[in-house]
């Protein structure tokens, strides 16, 4: 039914890969991981497919990052990894080796709120607060890449973060305010 042609053979794998000792890996249910969270080097021992979200919340007790759906829809679990926002409920820790991770706990410095947090507070952008950590992270990632976003760009940047309290109005206001203050 399908016509398949081998056009070229780029490489033929060797049968032995010295880097890997399969049986060791097979038996092992967890792995050592090193990454940096909010500027601090951390090491954890975790099953490789454990979600980054759970590693943060359970292993590191950083519970600011929230779970709202477990399917990458609500964005409450957003964190910044190597400069880009992602849903930590969809990222296995094995992909975090040597990563640089920023969570909501890393935004304020020495008890002083990040300009975004300050703007959220002043504008009334946090109500129940459960979407707030993810929302702040999405906004931080936006402002790091685009210092003066338009209102439409802000809406697009937070479209992956569901909020059921605010109608988004004051969140967009706050991000705009933080951008113009910067």
């Amino acid at each position: 039914m399908c016509i398949v042609s081998v056009i070229s053979v780029i490489s033929v794998a060797k049968n032995v890969c010295p880097n890997l000792v399969w049986s060791d890996l097979e038996a092992k249910k967890s792995m050592k991981l090193n990454f940096r969270v909010n500027g601090v080097e951390r090491e954890i021992d975790a099953p490789p497919m454990k979600r980054l979200l759970d590693a943060l919340r359970e292993d590191l007790r950083l519970t600011g990052t929230k779970e709202g759906c477990g399917e990458g829809e609500c964005g409450a679990c957003s964190v910044i990894v190597d400069g880009e926002a992602l849903n930590s409920c969809l990222a296995p820790v094995c992909q975090m080796q040597n990563a640089n991770i920023i969570t909501v706990e890393g935004l304020a410095r020495d008890g002083k709120l990040d300009p975004l947090q300050q703007a959220f507070l002043e504008c009334g952008a946090a109500q129940c607060g459960i979407c707030t950590p993810g929302m702040l992270i999405a906004a931080r990632a936006l402002l790091d890449a685009n210092r003066r976003p338009s209102r439409d760009e802000i809406k697009e940047a937070i479209a992956g973060n569901l909020c059921r309290c605010t109608g988004y109005v004051k969140i967009i206001d706050a991000i705009e305010q933080a951008a113009s203050a910067a």
């Binding site: 794998a13 060797k14 399969w22 249910k29 497919m49």
Partner: peptide, 22 residues
């Protein structure tokens, strides 16, 4: 479930092929 599973993180395509063959 995630916690019971194993993951291999090959660092080259050859390693990946080896794992897939295995």
């Amino acid at each position: 479930m995630a916690l019971d599973s194993t993951a291999f993180s090959p660092t080259s395509l050859d390693e990946a092929y080896e794992l897939l063959t295995r």
